[in-house]
Design a protein around this nucleic acid. Structure first.
Lengths: 172, 172
DNA sequence: CCTCCACTGACACGAGTGTTTCAGTAATGC
DNA sequence: GCATTACTGAAACACTCGTGTCAGTGGAGG
């Protein structure tokens, strides 16, 4: 159960990494930027690894919140893309990609399992949006895997080029 | 024009980062692993940034070599996927993803433009594989953007889950 | 032989890293 | 009032980092 001060600092740290990236964050600059100290960060989160873990969980919470209120009716893919392509969400998604890549290179530590977890999160949402008589068939699995691939590939493209017009047109 | 020793050490360093990742590589461990010294690395590549730049170029050379002999006939997408999903290429592709993510977070330095460059490389290959009467239409652009997204999204999935059966089935 | 040149070793420098130790302060519960 | 608890500050520890300095190698070309 996190204390009030802890969630407050976590939120500030989260805003910080959204713009500075997670890869080479270090305690002193971070602490200075959010008006704290390394001593306090270490006291509240135990270690840097604990902080990273908390930040990753915080980011995943954002993601899960999205998936929760995107609904499950028809047109999910379009709605998901609408959310993914919104300029306001770009920092979060860049962070997401960073964590994803990192968890592949370094399967230990706080990153462990991040990539695999998000694949499953999304597949489940796409699954529950499928008609019931398809959901459990091989064809259904193939379809939602394809949908997920399309969304994420498009996201990669968008993050690199910023060319929303071309990428959105490709998904229509 | 790189010297013999330089390409030799670059090749060794390349093998090293393929298994250790590019993100938190540091000179002393790398030098020790490839039987060299930080002094020599700096002498040959000028700085750590120069080394990274050379390694990134080396990785991109692998990628371009692939794209060159994948041909342009019909069935490119299938052939590309065959290459992407080959277990032997997984380290290279993980490295690729790492560099991609990094270049989004840190647009300066040696990573600059890496993500954007690879999008363009691949789109061009897919373009030259399209029938001429489609290539320059908006529909053609949309189609190859979609193909690229599908391939890359599937790659992301595969790298995280290793579930080649499901992902390959989705692309069929 | 002698000079040039590519390459290498040992070492130190200053800066930055995560973490620890020791010392508090302010508020809370009894 | 007093003890407990949550939090904070300052300073140090034992590293690792990229890079610079200075001194050499060994071989090839004149």
């Amino acid at each position: 159960m996190p204390s009030a001060r802890e969630t407050e600092l976590l939120e500030a740290a989260y805003r910080y990494v959204l713009t500075h990236g997670l890869a080479d964050v270090s305690l002193r600059p971070l602490a200075a930027a959010i008006g704290s100290s390394t001593r306090v960060l270490l006291y509240l989160f135990g270690s840097k690894e604990g902080l990273i873990r908390a930040l990753l969980a915080r980011a995943r919470a954002d993601e899960l919140a999205l998936l929760a209120d995107i609904g499950t009716g028809p047109g999910v893919v379009a709605r998901l893309w609408e959310w993914l392509s919104a300029p306001a969400h770009r920092p979060l998604l860049t962070l997401w990609l960073e964590a994803y890549a990192r968890s592949l290179v370094e399967p230990d530590g706080p990153w462990a399992g991040f990539a695999r977890a998000t694949v499953e999160d999304w597949l489940e949402v796409l699954s529950s949006a499928q008609p019931e008589d398809v959901r459990d068939t091989p064809a259904g699995l193939a379809q939602r895997t394809r949908e997920l691939a399309l969304l994420r590939g498009a996201l990669l493209d968008l993050l690199a080029t910023g060319d929303e017009e071309r990428v959105s047109a490709a998904l229509a």
